[in-house]
């Protein structure tokens, strides 16, 4: 349990270090060392000397013939990350399905998300709401991430192209571009966006990190942040942080082009259209024409009771 709670944060940092430090520089060195070892005897003449920076920040000089290029050291490059963030993952159309009948307000999704994106406790990329439509209809829990609309009102109003829609459907924010006018917050009908009113939570720890558009870390004071469908995880073929953290099988995530979504808890993959058809899937506030990429399955036959303590808050909105 405890591992599940803290893993996303730790993992992301660990992965980051792995990706950046070890895979990047380390493999250049390892590769060159092996290469040098094997080719030592075959080497015919000495070439130019080149300088190599190790993961431990040591500057080494080695013979150019000894070095093998094992890939570009790209993870540290802001421009590369920004470009990659805008291009998205080709051929994909990400889609999320949230099964309201399974949600019991365990909030593992919220914790995992806040951990991964270094958010303050009151900042929610995903927020589990207590909902009730009318006096006679039952209350239910509704996790609400960014809807990643295909007709996004938030993107429309951005004056500087800081928030944008990618080819794969994800709406992202480049917080190196954001001017903090908060027009997008005003325009979003789903209240999906948050703002960094103060210095972000882990700013001290994050200060040497290169900003990753797909993770929105480090967060920046005076800029907007929101759910990213864990674009960084998708790149690695992994399900979003919230989806994998859920212990109750609430979330399905997948690619509309493949007509398949995978449940984050059971890892079972099902056909998207069939899932929506059999469970009367719907989208939030369709009358606004925002075309969300998040679908909901109604809370029919809930597997968990709605807690009595949560009822007043749910009723408030009737």
């Amino acid at each position: 349990m405890s591992e599940k709670e803290e893993s996303p944060k730790k993992k992301s940092r660990r992965e980051f270090l792995q990706d950046v430090g070890i895979v990047g520089v380390g493999s250049i060195l390892a590769g060159s060392a092996i290469f040098a070892g094997i080719n030592y005897d075959k080497k015919k003449k000495l070439g130019d000397r080149i300088k190599v920076l190790t993961a431990e920040n040591e500057l080494l000089e080695i013979d150019k013939n000894d070095a093998t290029k094992v890939g570009k050291f790209k993870s540290q490059d802001l421009t590369f990350l920004q470009k990659q963030g805008r291009e998205g993952i080709p051929g994909k159309r990400w889609v999320m399905v949230i099964d309201l009948s399974k949600c019991r307000n365990a909030r593992k999704c919220m914790n995992a998300c806040q951990g991964a994106h270094h958010l303050r406790p009151e900042q929610h990329h995903i927020n589990v709401l207590k909902m009730q439509e009318s006096k006679n209809t039952p209350p239910y829990y509704m996790p609400k991430p960014c809807q990643h609309c295909d007709n996004p009102p938030c993107v429309a109003v951005c004056p500087v192209d800081a928030t944008f829609k990618r080819p794969d459907g994800i709406v992202l924010i480049d917080n190196e571009r954001c001017i903090g006018c908060r027009f997008c917050i005003a325009a979003c009908p789903y209240s999906a966006r948050v703002f960094n009113w103060t210095e972000p939570l882990l700013n001290e720890d994050d200060k040497d990190k290169t900003y990753n558009v797909e993770l929105n870390v480090p967060q920046r004071k005076g800029t907007v942040s929101k759910c990213l469908f864990s674009a960084d995880r998708l790149r690695d073929g992994k399900l979003p942080y919230c989806v994998s953290a859920c212990p109750n099988g609430v979330y399905y995530f997948g690619d509309e082009n493949e007509d398949a979504v995978t449940n984050g808890t059971t890892k079972e993959t099902v056909r998207l259209k069939k899932l929506l058809e059999e469970n009367a899937g719907y989208r939030l506030m369709p009358e606004l024409g925002t075309q969300p990429r998040v679908y909901y399955l109604p809370a029919k036959g809930k597997s968990y009771p709605f807690q009595d303590a949560d009822k007043p808050e749910a009723e408030e909105h009737i």
Binding site: A156, V157, C158, P159, V160, D161, A162, R177, C178, I179, G180, C181, R182, F183, F195, N196, R220, K221, G222, T223, V224
Partner: peptide, 24 residues
């Protein structure tokens, strides 16, 4: 309007990265 901006130092972006679809 500048006093309302989270990043007033990026005011210039309104001109160099302008999106003419934005009412701003």
């Amino acid at each position: 309007i500048v006093s309302d901006m989270g990043r007033p130092e990026r005011l210039i972006y309104v001109f160099i990265h302008a999106r003419i679809q934005s009412p701003i």
